[in-house]
């Protein structure tokens, strides 16, 4: 099968590889780059577990053709810590019991980060809207919404 060369920025680092036609970004990240923070949940864009940021915008990596990120910046949960320090969203999720099995958490955090990066002080409704494509089956959505709001207010006061 013909391979296509592909270059993009992955969490601030340049990567270059060859992909089969039709390969999706989730497979490139997980299988080829070894970044397993985006999760497979449905492969149909229904659950949000594979959410990553492309040039700062939340996207479903399972529905994104790898070639589509040529020359762009891809950010995953693996890249949002600063050294040993948790991102304010990670801290708020941990403190607010906003994760149970943890499987939807990477996608939730990335969807929430896309929101806070463009709107540091969102309303509750805007938070609900931002994570509306992400399914959680354990904790319920309330602690997750509260954690995103708590992260926003902790950044405001910092």
């Amino acid at each position: 099968m013909a391979k296509t060369p592909l270059q993009f920025r992955h969490n601030g680092r340049d990567v270059a590889l060859f992909v089969d036609g039709g390969t999706n970004l989730l497979v490139v990240l997980r299988e080829m780059l070894g970044d397993v923070t985006p999760k497979f949940g449905c492969g149909q864009g229904g659950c949000g577990a594979c959410t990553v940021l492309i040039d700062g915008e939340a996207h479903l990596s399972c529905l994104t053709l790898a070639e589509a990120v040529e020359g762009r910046a891809v950010e995953t949960l693996d890249g949002i810590k600063t050294g040993p320090n948790l991102h304010p969203l990670q801290r708020a999720f941990a403190e607010g019991f906003a994760a149970q099995c943890g499987y939807c958490t990477p996608g939730m955090l990335m969807a929430a980060k896309a929101l806070l990066d463009r709107n540091p002080q969102p309303s509750r409704e805007q938070v609900v809207e931002a994570i509306s494509g992400n399914i959680c089956r354990c904790t319920g959505y309330e602690p997750i919404i509260n954690a995103v709001l708590a992260a926003a207010s902790s950044r405001a006061s910092a």
């Binding site: 923070t37 801290r91 019991f97």
Partner: peptide, 23 residues
């Protein structure tokens, strides 16, 4: 009382290992 889960740090950093994270 609130007690932190021992797997919480892994969950929020995406480093908790699920079966499919083994390559």
């Amino acid at each position: 009382k609130g007690t932190q889960r021992q797997d919480m740090l892994g969950h929020v950093t995406g480093t908790s290992t699920y079966f499919n994270d083994h390559k």
